[in-house]
Design a protein around this nucleic acid. Sequence first.
DNA 1: CATGACCTTTACGTCAACGTCAATGTGATC
DNA 2: GATCACATTGACGTTGACGTAAAGGTCATG
Lengths: 174, 174
Amino acid sequence: MPDTASPSTLPRANVEAGPARLLRIQEVAAEVGLTTRSIRYYEEMGLLEPAARSDGDYRLFDPSDLDRLRFIKRLRDDAGFSLSQIGQLLEDEAARERNRERLRTTTDPDERRAILTDALGRVERQLETLDAKAEALNTMLDDVRARRLRLRSLLDDLDRGPVVTEASPASGTR
Amino acid sequence: MPDTASPSTLPRANVEAGPARLLRIQEVAAEVGLTTRSIRYYEEMGLLEPAARSDGDYRLFDPSDLDRLRFIKRLRDDAGFSLSQIGQLLEDEAARERNRERLRTTTDPDERRAILTDALGRVERQLETLDAKAEALNTMLDDVRARRLRLRSLLDDLDRGPVVTEASPASGTR
DNA sequence: CATGACCTTTACGTCAACGTCAATGTGATC
DNA sequence: GATCACATTGACGTTGACGTAAAGGTCATG
């Protein structure tokens, strides 16, 4: 029984969940809204590695690759990170997934703890990066909201009654 | 009596508030943390216009120019906007300041209302732009926080007691 | 008025992030 | 097994956002 693909917005390894139909680059591009060139470029930059290659060396992408590409796109478009910054974040991601493998293969509690602690540290760093950006953005948002408030109250004043701004006694007079 | 410059983080026109010492490009660059090249480039791109020029055509910047440059820098570094996007936002800014001039020179309530409404609309659009970005960022932040939570609980489990991930034949009570 | 630090414009160089051929190979279909 | 859409790897072109050097003007100071 083929499991219905559970959609996820997060990059997650498709851990031993069956073959799960591999896509070629053009389908992937259409699916995630990137160009084939960009996808190849991201691979060249080390941001991802296609799940497999065909006999004739065609790139073959699995669902987790799609998630990863969507994640990259979000970081690029929404957050405005550079590819090298994204590389930092995804490097951590990749390490995390490698560690997930090891986590499942080891039973030594100490090693498990070490791996988890390591992963936690990387996530914390990701959080710091994103948080800093979000905070800066929110500050700017507050500034603009303040301006909006001022404009609104000016308009209210205007509607409520004739303004007594009285400041230019000889306006236009020379 | 020279008024002490009131610091503001927002770009605001220095409305008839006295001469207020004009700075040359290098001082400005040092002050706001940009290169002179960038400042000239921003002018070339139409993001700002120095308050004045000296006899010998030196660019001369007033405090509101500095605020504007700081604003540009924040949009670029913190929010990750491109210069053309910043141009959109600042185009609105420029129009707003021109309108502020007209606001002070007209007494016609209808015209004032029109100008204010116009300005309000532009600020709303700025808000939309910034809001969209902030929302996207917050979504990503939530995702990462969720991952952190999962890692923490895994670590907690590990600390609290031996995990029963699998049948470990070696240890434990028989 | 000479000097040196700073400014001007002009113009070419650079790096990231792709776009766009070109030459060639693949693979499902008729 | 020929076809044709899609794939591959170069390699060069382009755009944005500056860096940097050249050839000169400006301005406060000795």
